[in-house]
Design a protein around this nucleic acid. Structure first.
Length: 769
RNA sequence: GGCCCCCUGGUGUAAUGGCAGCACAAUAGCCUUUGGAGCUGUUGGUCCAGGUUCGAAUCCUGGGGGGGCUACCA
């Protein structure tokens, strides 16, 4: 079984196999203006993962081209997060700012080549002249300046002779491009701002579309991965590198879908707002989806990494269930977190049969048997205990397996106790104390074979440590917080109960001796660890990392969240000219020759309208079709091959630049029609033609793909296949008819590609009954 | 005259044109001194319509739906 690969791994694998690059180099390019979040982790895992998988390297490059928002503190925080996540870039730490001089030199070069100009229109004018999604842009008054003037202006821009916004450097590309990004994008802007890294050395700063691709190229990056919203920017990425003259093999950009997580926001803009407006305590507030927050909350780095592996890499915009993240966290913690007992909302439990003032230290294993780890601690048992308020109900619902009047329950690692009586506060109606008797024979929790309703956790009232517990829940009430009613914003969905602080919880005394950084599992409630900022030996403050899975309260009816929409998957390298019907109609309207061909294809050749339409959308296609038709006069089948099979192999190349011509296609189709080659085999031949060209018949013989339609010969293969797959045969005969295709495929493979699948199928049907 | 990208169970994803699989969630049971963990089973899917093909999730066409793009942000 092949391990399944995402489309990016498959792409790089292909490049490696082709020997396209001498080394695989990726990069993670954060802008130092915010903290890393779980969405970045996906990109980080991808970039570092690809580099590691193919023995290459991954750079860390700060994309610091905007002095107004960036800051050294973010540079440090990002590196700290990355290291904590477990990634290392060795000496490959780079800053876009360090390339400013080189980038500027290239800008002058572009000006000299006439590929860039200084535009002195205002920002407003430029925007207006750029047109809109439906209107073409037009030139401003400065587009056709002389090279010398442009150069002079650019130098003076750099020298600081102008105010912010007086001029910009623009690429001279295409003002009517359907891709807005290509309408003469701004390359440099004047900004008299102090840069955290270059200080006051510069007053002009490059834009992303100019700086990013150059940074990649300077560093010898082979694969530049970014998220889907940069799809339109790929064209400018290529334009700049070509204009500058970077030659293959060089970097190219590939896009994948960013991560979206249920019940949270992952846009930097929104996260900044939460911090600025004090909705959270900071970037590392444990409710935030940032790496720093997960770390503070107690989530192990491993959980974040394994989560990234679970979500996959595709081009489909998707929103991942938070349950998946929670699963990854529990999965990482289950095997390593020692079990302890802690009571969140204490209720007094008096063991009336236990002597006053007496205590007993019981042995409690730190892990259940299935975890398979040694170790235990002592827990004190006494007359007055504390249990969870939820674990005693005067009127228990059906299926309740805890303490209730008349019932017995096991105190974990302690004794089986039987209900005796309880008191109620007449004012509030709340239970204030429960009295039970214990069975001395059940010491350690051994119920001696009698059925006990359930097992509950507890602490000794006199020995327990007080602790503040911080219970975190999802920050938002809805799966997609950015989906908001008109006139409001995502903050309306903030969950008021995302943080519940329990000031007076009680935990077993062993917590005082635990090594720092320990994550515990509070049995039956969840995973906790000391808050790294606020906890101290004098005052325990514990964060709940994640709850335990809880089938009981789930059953009680918390409705599962409904899901939002989704989207989706793969990037071919070259853009395929996608012509729609409208475009083909337009082509024919402008070219009477095409129009008359469409008519004659239908009348003289007997093709259907759809076929005739597809073949006459442009001259190259119709010429190709006719060329093939000259060699093999079967319009129907030639048309089918040109329409259905040719495009896949062409992959966006102009038909005139193929390593084979209509002649070869015509002969190939002829061979198919005369039965010399099966369709499957012919497709292989076509692929070979598209790759390297050649003579169809020669390829056919070389690859041993001559059709074997002889019944006897195919029969032999059928027998072989049937005896190779006895289990499949049984399944088929038990009714799994879908397997027929599998057998046909096997027979064709067994024959080396030559067997006629029609014949094979017929024989198989007979043989299998 | 907008351009580009995407659509597989509830969710996230796999499947050289040949057995629609995996994970999370759900559900039933087993096991259990955690209503945890684990184990076993079950439910449920190729957006629609045509076409090509012995055979289509996959190729072609049309339609439907979702997303991105009109910063001197990245």
């Amino acid at each position: 079984m092949q391990p399944s690969r995402d489309f990016i791994t498959a792409l790089v694998e292909r490049h490696v196999a082709e020997g396209r690059y001498t080394e695989i180099v990726t990069r993670f390019p954060p802008e130092p203006n915010g903290f890393l979040h779980i969405g970045h982790v996906k990109a980080i895992a991808l970039n570092f993962g690809i580099a590691a998988k193919f023995g290459g390297r991954c750079h860390l490059r700060f994309d610091d081209t905007n002095p107004e928002t960036e800051d050294e503190s973010f540079v440090r925080a990002i590196q700290e997060d990355l290291h904590w996540l477990g990634y290392d870039w060795g000496e490959h730490l780079y800053f876009a700012a360090d390339y400013f001089e080189r980038m500027y030199g290239i800008a002058e070069e572009l000006v000299r080549k006439g590929k860039a100009y200084v535009d002195s229109a205002t920002e407003e004018e430029i925007r207006e002249a750029r047109g809109s999604l439906t209107e073409p842009g037009r030139a401003t008054a400065y587009r056709d300046r002389e090279v010398a003037e442009n150069l002079d202006l650019l130098r003076r821009m750099r020298a600081g002779e102008f105010e912010d916004g007086e001029h910009v450097l623009r690429a001279k590309i295409d003002l009517v491009s359907p891709n807005m990004v290509m309408r003469d994008p701004v390359l440099y802007r004047i900004r008299h701002a102090r840069h955290y890294r270059t200080g006051d050395e510069w007053c002009i700063y490059p834009m992303y579309d100019y700086a990013h691709c150059l940074g990649d190229a300077f560093e010898g990056v082979s694969h530049s991965f970014c998220t889907l919203e940069f799809e339109n920017n790929r064209e400018i990425y290529e334009w700049v590198l070509e204009a500058v003259g970077f030659e293959e093999p060089r970097t190219h950009q590939y896009e994948f879908a960013r991560l979206n997580l249920d019940y949270t926001v992952l846009s930097k803009r929104k996260l900044v707002r939460l911090v600025r407006e004090g909705r959270v305590s900071g970037w590392d507030d444990p409710r935030m989806p940032t790496v720093a927050a997960f770390r503070r909350r107690g989530v192990p780095a491993e959980a974040l990494r394994s989560f990234s592996g679970m979500v996959g890499v595709t081009k489909a915009e998707a929103r991942v269930d938070v349950e998946k993240l929670e699963y990854a966290i529990r999965d990482a913690l289950n095997g390593v977190a020692p079990r302890v007992m802690g009571v969140l909302r204490p209720l007094r439990l008096i063991v009336t049969t236990w002597p006053e003032g007496s205590e007993e230290w019981l042995d409690a294993p730190s892990f259940p048997p299935d975890v398979g780890k040694e170790g235990s601690r002592k827990v004190p048992f006494a007359r007055e205990l504390l249990i969870e308020q939820d674990d005693f109900l005067v009127e228990p619902p059906e299926g309740y397996r805890r303490l209730a009047p008349g019932r017995e329950v096991r105190l974990r690692y302690g004794y089986v106790v039987r209900y005796d009586s309880h008191d109620v506060d007449p004012a509030t109606g709340e239970v204030t104390v429960v009295r039970v008797t214990h069975d001395p024979a059940s010491r350690g929790g051994d119920a001696k074979g009698r059925p006990v309703a359930g097992t509950i956790h507890w602490v000794s009232s006199g020995h327990a440590l007080p602790a503040e517990l911080r219970l975190y829940d999802r920050l938002f009430n809805v799966p997609d917080p950015s989906d908001v009613p008109e006139g409001t914003d995502f903050t309306v969905h903030l969950n008021d109960e995302s943080l519940v602080v329990i000031g007076d919880a009680r935990v077993e005394p062993s917590l005082a001796d635990a090594p720092s950084g320990t994550r515990w599992q509070f049995e039956r409630t969840g995973y906790f660890w000391p808050d790294p900022v606020d906890s101290s030996p004098e005052r325990l403050v514990l964060n709940r990392v994640v709850t335990l899975r809880d089938r009981w309260t789930r059953k009680e009816g918390t409705p599962r969240a409904e899901k939002g929409a989704s989207l989706a998957a793969l990037t071919p390298v070259g853009p395929g000219p996608d012509r729609g019907r409208g475009e083909r109609d337009a082509a024919r309207a402008h070219d009477p020759d095409l129009a008359s061909r469409m008519a004659s294809y239908r009348e003289a050749l007997g093709l259907g309208e759809g076929e005739a339409d597809l073949l006459t959308g442009d001259r190259a296609t119709s010429a190709f079709f006719e060329g093939a038709l000259e060699v093999h006069q079967q319009a129907k089948s030639v048309a089918a091959w040109v329409i259905n099979e040719l495009p896949r192999e062409v992959r966006g190349r102009p038909l005139t630049e193929l390593p084979f011509g209509p002649d070869e296609l015509g002969r190939l189709v002829g061979l198919v029609d005369e039965g010399a080659v099966s369709r499957v085999a012919a497709k292989k031949v076509l692929a070979e033609l598209a790759d390297r060209g050649g003579d169809p018949e020669v390829i056919l013989d070389r690859m041993g793909l001559r059709q074997v339609a002889d019944r006897g010969a195919v029969f032999v293969h059928v027998e072989k296949v049937l005896s190779n797959w006895p289990a499949k045969v049984e399944e088929y005969q038990a009714g799994k008819r879908g397997l027929l295709g599998f057998f046909v495929g096997q027979v064709v493979r067994e024959s080396g590609g030559g067997a006629d699948p029609k014949v094979a199928k017929a024989i198989l049907e007979e043989r299998l009954g």
